[in-house]
Write a protein that binds this DNA or RNA. Structure first.
Lengths: 134, 134
DNA sequence: AGGGAAGTGTTATAACATAACGTTTTATTA
DNA sequence: TAATAAAACGTTATGTTATAACACTTCCCT
């Protein structure tokens, strides 16, 4: 794995296609939906999508939302702490947050039980402020 | 919905079957795995399993692990705060924790952005103390 | 130029989940 | 206790999400 700059320059054709599709979307997108959108650009099989998504996750450019089976752009490539996703049940929008306290809380809980954490998933379902207001 | 006592007495045949299968398991179990185990007791279709699992979740006896597509018994029917699941990559075991600080942190993050939370998912992947020791 | 690693394409299949419909059981209350 | 509403159940078919296996290509480094 190279440094950030090199990484960004090194994006492949499929990676760029998937990224572009994710940028256009205002919500997380499923793998088969991405496939449908990218058929016109030559992608034909689910695996091409899944592989590309795995690569983009590895590059920390994309997150997978486990409770939605869908993917979304990372808000900011530079964070190290655990992202918190707030997922609106009504409009489907997702916001990504970071919270130092939460991250350290999580670390404490792990440590207390001797568990060595690797990857943390925090997803909150509910209603966003806009939907709540309307 | 009745009180806890009544609820427990009211478990149906399918609910009892699924619960028993989950109790025997030392790890979260997938829906089709449950189906396989319960075929000998007359369950034949996935939907019978999925429906029963939904009922047990509604009764707060069972949790779904979103990142595993699997289900596990709730450690304790009496909690109200958000459960934290620590999932071992090596042995597959899962531990359920509760942490007041974490729960209130989560609530704060939601509130700050005007998001009204409904359901929270916290799943940590890593290595449990036993696997880490060996 | 040679060799290894990463990326690609394709077919087939596995794993996970729900729609739609009708029947049976259970609980409620008139 | 008969009528009826609600919950649970069973079954077939289908939809959705994800991976296995294998062969080929491209890129990069020495």
């Amino acid at each position: 794995m190279k440094n950030k700059l090199t990484k960004k320059q090194a994006l492949t054709k499929n990676q760029l296609l998937v990224l572009k599709a994710l940028r256009k979307a205002k919500q997380p997108v499923g793998a088969y939906e991405l496939l449908d959108q990218l058929r016109e650009h030559g992608l034909k099989a689910p695996l091409q999508i899944y592989r590309t998504l795995d690569q983009l996750i590895e590059l920390k450019i994309v997150h997978r939302l486990e409770s939605l089976n869908a993917w979304t752009l990372c808000c900011d490539a530079e964070h190290d702490s655990t992202p918190v996703f707030a997922i609106c049940n009504d409009c489907g929008s997702v916001n990504e947050f970071f919270d130092e306290n939460l991250t350290s809380n999580l670390a404490k809980i792990s440590k207390k039980s001797g568990f060595v954490a690797d990857r943390s998933i925090i997803e909150i379902h509910g209603r966003c402020d806009q939907c709540e207001a309307s």
